[in-house]
Structures are given as C-alpha cells and as structure tokens.
C-alpha cells in the first residue's frame, strides 16, 4: 500500500462513506432546520432590539446594551451548556435541539442588534431632518427612509456573522443534537475511520457556499450610486 493509498483509504474511504452517507444526510437536514430557525429568529430579534433602541428610552437602552454585550462576550458553547443543563433546575427541560437553537439565536440576536444599530446610526442626520420636515412621523421616517438605507449597509457584516454563527450549529453535538458533525463523529467512532468527517466537511461547504455567494449577490443587487 503506497502512502497515497493509505491516505485515501483513511480519509476518503468510499466504502465507509457510502455506508454512512444516509446518516450524514439526515444530519444535513437537522443542520438546515437548526440554521434556518437560528437565522430567522436571531436576526428578527436583533432587528426588533435595534428598533427599540432607536426610541432612545434610556433605562431600556441600558438593558438592551447589557444583554447584547453579555451574549456577545460569552462563547456560544457556554450558552448552549447553560441552557441545556441550567434550565432544568427551574423545571424547564429543553431538548438539545431547542437549547442549541435558543443559544445560537440569542448570540445572533446580540450581534445583529449591534450591526443593525450601527446601520441605523450611520444614516446621515439630514435624512431624518428632511423626512421629518415634510411631516413624516418618527416611525414613518425610520421605516421608509432610514431602515432601507441602514439595511443595505448591514448586509455584508450580517452575512459574515450569520455564517459564523450558523456554523456553530456543530456545537449542538455536545448536547446530543444529531446534526452533521454529530452524525459524522459518531460514524467516525463506529467505523474507526475519519472518512465520514470528510463527508461532513463537504456537506458544510455545500451548505454554506451558496449562502456566501447569495450574500455577495444581495450586496451588489442592493448597492446604489451615491
């Protein structure tokens, strides 16, 4: 057996891959479910917090900034573990799936709130003044004038952050979520061969590459000449 053969036999063993492909695919489904839930709820919650913050109610803003800073500084894994092992002590026992969703959703909420907030504050003051001078209310100005401009600015950082956090679905393995990495590592220990891990890695690329490309497309699609 040549070195090259030994390498492919270890990492790209077709027999092992074929055998565990169904497991990896079921992991892909779980990862997609988890990722979609995290992205949708995390971004919506982040936007909601940023809008609340724009009302400039001081005690509320302290609270928002506090919550956001905590979730931005904690490692997502710690949040998952806290929710999964901590909540049962107050008689709430979320599944591993729900714990991972909640944890990553909260972390994405925190980062996207900061990104949306940066977008809102970067819109020139003159835009507010022009809109308000024509009689638009605060809410109408935010909705029709400021947000459309802010959202375009937020797309690149938001895409990056979203990809980084959805990849964190792999952390769900520690609380027994059967997503891609969980399936791959149990397949790896059952087969004594790391090929399923390669399969899992390929699945991540297949999943996230289109997201990266889509982010780039959205970025150019919504750019306007200043």
């Amino acid at each position: 057996m040549s070195r090259w053969d030994r390498f492919t036999d270890t990492f790209f063993n077709t027999k092992v891959m074929a055998r565990y492909l169904p497991d990896i695919l079921s992991g892909v489904v779980v990862t997609i479910e988890l990722a979609v839930l995290v992205v949708v709820t995390g971004i919506l919650a982040g936007l909601a917090l940023a809008l609340l913050r724009s009302l400039a109610i001081r005690p509320l803003n302290w609270l928002i900034v506090g919550v956001v800073d905590v979730f931005r500084s904690l490692p997502p894994l710690v949040v998952i573990v806290l929710i999964y092992f901590g909540l049962p002590s107050i008689d709430v026992s979320p599944s591993g799936f729900v714990s991972t969703w909640l944890a990553l959703g909260l972390v994405l909420m925190a980062f996207s709130e900061e990104i949306f907030w940066a977008g809102i504050t970067s819109v020139a003051k003159g835009q507010w003044e022009a809109a308000r001078s024509t009689g638009l209310s605060f809410g109408q100005t935010l909705l029709h004038v400021v947000l459309p401009q802010a959202l375009r600015l937020t797309i690149p950082p938001l895409t990056n952050r979203t990809i980084a956090i959805t990849k964190g679905t792999a952390l769900g393995t520690v609380v027994a979520v059967t997503e891609i990495l969980g399936q791959a590592s149990s397949a790896m220990s059952n087969s004594y061969n790391p090929s399923p891990l390669m399969l899992g890695a390929a699945a991540y690329v297949v999943l996230f590459f289109p997201v990266v490309v889509a982010g780039r497309w959205v970025e150019t699609r919504f750019a306007w000449k200043r």
Partner: peptide, 8 residues
C-alpha cells in the same frame, strides 16, 4: 444645504 434627498 446638503439637499438630503433619499438616495435609495
């Protein structure tokens, strides 16, 4: 002074 048209 700075027009403040909505760029979008």
């Amino acid at each position: 002074q700075s027009f403040n048209l909505y760029p979008h």
